[in-house]
């Protein structure tokens, strides 16, 4: 699957890239903030976007909304470390298909991606 990662923690971003490549996914783009995320999405048009809700520059919810405006069929998986139910609900309302709460491990990640297919 052609996947794009949006995560402000660079280490976690690289970790996810490493892990997903190991199981055969294609990481087409990575972004560390909301604005960069939109540019990378436009350039790479990935099949799946894994995105953290709390992001610098542009909030994750806004990024999801804009991606959905560009492509209504975009598949989006959100990740969050805050235990704010309302924030997850907002992300799902904006068009995210599923979510993962941090800390998730490799198994959770792979299972959730399988479900998105």
């Amino acid at each position: 699957m052609r996947i794009m990662l949006v995560e402000d923690d660079e280490n976690l971003c690289l970790t996810m890239e490493f892990a997903l490549k190991k199981v055969g996914h294609d990481i087409v783009g990575m972004a560390n903030d909301g604005e960069a995320a939109l540019n990378v999405y436009r350039d790479t048009n990935p099949e799946l976007v894994i995105i953290d809700i709390i992001l610098p520059k542009l909030h994750g919810i806004d990024v999801i909304t804009k991606i959905k405006e560009m492509n209504t069929d975009a598949k989006i998986l959100v990740t969050t470390g805050a235990s704010h139910d309302s924030l997850i609900m907002k992300a799902m309302d904006s068009g995210a298909k599923s979510y993962l709460t941090k800390p998730f491990g490799m198994n959770d990640l792979i299972t959730e991606i399988e479900k998105m297919k």
Partner: peptide, 8 residues
């Protein structure tokens, strides 16, 4: 967030 990387 860093805990996620470690767990992965």
């Amino acid at each position: 967030t860093p805990l996620t990387a470690i767990k992965t």
